[in-house]
Design a binder for these strands. Structure first.
Lengths: 242, 242
DNA sequence: CGGACTGTTGATTCGAATCAAAACCGGTGG
DNA sequence: CCACCGGTTTTGATTCGAATCAACAGTCCG
């Protein structure tokens, strides 16, 4: 069932890139090795070398680092269609962990194949390069989020970002999206303690901005939440290059 | 005097990339428009579109974002030989500011030329791609720094990082390096207030770890400062891909 | 000389971490 | 079916790191 894998990848790629029919055919021709994997499993660890990239077909994946004191910081949340370790194509050693948050279906692409297809099709090379640049843009925004925003706006910003990105690949239903993460996870994303995450979420619920039940997040007042989080979507670079 | 410009670029590129003689010739053949510019001047602003990239020949450049409340967060510090807006080649709109910290000599490369050279020489495309990936790796470490480290280790980490990067391009003299930034700047890099930056620097001086006079930083006890900052240089990806 | 940054100091406030304990939940197995 | 368990969420009390506020000293420069 490589079909679903390819579809997820193409859906995500065409959100931010203009691909012609030959590009699409080349993507469809890629060999992708499918693998289902459980929640909380390490895909690639900090310090490892790898000869393949991992595309997410279903589920959520974290990139994270853990400090010597055992404090974890999540660096990015990845959603279906993304290739969270695309950088391994040109950086030989992993400088962080890649770990599933939920049970996932992954598709593995060998570096050899990726190098072939990017050499043969400059437009695809540009598209994949661009994907890594968008990752970097999101990292930049996270630096601002963690460095300069207080807990409540920080959380608001994260939730809006996730909603926007999931919306772009059609994984939302009128403000609702499934995101099976714990409050511990959210704390690790935002550089906050679990206790404080809990209080921030309570505040946002009390204000009627969001509703959460189980792992379903529901954004009730988009406008107000975006203002609260000082959200400007420019950094997501959704939509193809002009 | 395009010679100095090209030298700076090549010095930096060969720190992290293996270039063959044809690659080097191609770089040397690039048209670079030189421009001297004062301190605290905006090179490209958030929201702008640009059709060229900016290479630093001399001086320091910040990438930064400013929140609605006027709080600035510095995203990265760039040193001679780097191309801090290389991402503009594939991201049409700037999502942050690029601003000089000191008087600088810059070299501008048109996107058209960059696209030509990367299309013709896949190895150079990979090298430039890799540069942007190393930028992203540094962003990731900054997320950890700002999100999970307290003020003193955070500062220690930044100083060690800068020393290592400057050392790689031969801009240090036994632990000393010139870095003409104010304490306000350091605060904006680290997500700390100016007052607290001052106290942290005093602590590091009192402990005999660093000495600062004017804009000259001197790292007196490397080992101890690295331990204090929990520094692991892997993320800098110095040295070419294995 | 005067003015504008820059660096320094002390007092106070505040946001978030930490500590500690309870309530809740979903699954497991008897 | 229910008791039990581990992980998660919630609550309250307390501590702590860093921001803020407010001066003041030092330095550079026109």
């Amino acid at each position: 069932m490589t079909l679903n894998l390819t579809t997820a990848l193409l859906t995500r790629l065409t959100v931010s890139n203009r691909l012609d029919s030959d590009d699409i055919r080349a993507i469809q021709g890629l060999r992708i090795q499918e693998k289902a994997i459980g929640a909380r499993e390490i895909i690639v660890a900090d310090g490892e070398r790898t000869d393949r990239c991992c595309m997410i077909s279903e589920g959520f994946v974290f990139r994270s680092k853990t400090t010597e004191e055992g404090q974890r910081q999540v660096l990015s949340i990845h959603i279906p269609g993304e290739v969270p370790d695309l950088q391994s194509l040109h950086l030989d050693v992993m400088d962080h962990d890649l770990i599933t948050v939920t049970p996932c279906v992954l598709g593995f692409l060998t570096h050899a194949d990726m190098k072939d297809v990017t050499r043969d099709r400059p437009n695809l090379a540009a598209a994949f390069w661009r994907e890594t640049l968008i990752d970097a843009a999101i990292f930049r925004e996270w630096i601002v989020n963690v460095g300069r925003r207080e807990a409540i706006p920080r959380m608001a910003h994260l939730l809006i970002e996730l909603h926007k990105r999931l919306e772009a690949i059609g994984h939302t239903r009128k403000g609702e999206f499934g995101l099976p993460v714990t409050q511990v996870d959210l704390g690790d994303c935002l550089g906050l303690s679990t206790v404080h995450v809990n209080r921030v979420l309570q505040f946002l619920r009390k204000e009627g901005l969001i509703a959460v039940r189980r792992s379903e997040f529901h954004i009730l007042q988009h406008q107000r939440l975006e203002e609260l989080g000082q959200f400007d979507p420019a950094y997501l670079h959704l939509g193809p290059n002009a």
